[in-house]
Design a protein around this nucleic acid. Sequence first.
DNA 1: ATCCCGAGGG
DNA 2: CCCTCTGGAT
Length: 214
Amino acid sequence: MTKKERYDFLIGYFLEHRPKAETELVYTDPYELAVATILSAQCTDKRVNLITPAFFRKFPDADSLSHAPQEDVFELIKSCSYPNNKAKNLIGMAKSLIKDFSGVLPSDVEELMTIPGVGRKTANVLASVIYKKPAMAVDTHVFRVSARIGLTTGAKTPYQAEIQLVKHIPEQLIPLAHHWLILHGRYVCIARKPKCPECGLTSVCKYYQLLRKE
DNA sequence: ATCCCGAGGG
DNA sequence: CCCTCTGGAT
């Protein structure tokens, strides 16, 4: 089984089974997606979606958020992880959006990464989801699933995995492929107890082949 | 005890 | 490279 065969199988499988994979974060504009994505670090999307309605009611745009007291932001997001860091970063993000980018979220990954709270993963998510750029965001799910199936080999960091994935997936499919791997990781290829019996990728999965040998 | 769409700083 | 931040769910 060559690497190309794995990728071809994966792409064929998901084009058939998840042709419309997309983010589960609830948002209505780039500002809201930026907020939701920053909040999603080490936190489930479900929990983020639970608190964002109240958040967006109180801070409907970057301007209102940029003037918010950190304590008010903290109170709204405290059930997500790292509320202190995130409150500071969210306000910083809003200020940067207004001051550095005239209120318009940039589409370039390197520019996005200059925004407080926006690292490589979040920058790739925003570039991919909002601007449909071929940016592969590698989060915990993408990293784990890619390694298990064998789409990546020996990747020690999310960035190394990103390089390998981008190299083998057609540009126009990258935004879709990102969500394929996320959703597969969330609902099937779960970290602690993967549901191999209901996974359609076992025939090409390195992890599954290893399990069967034991 | 381990994981959830990580980022920033040392 | 490491560490810290740090709440909720399983």
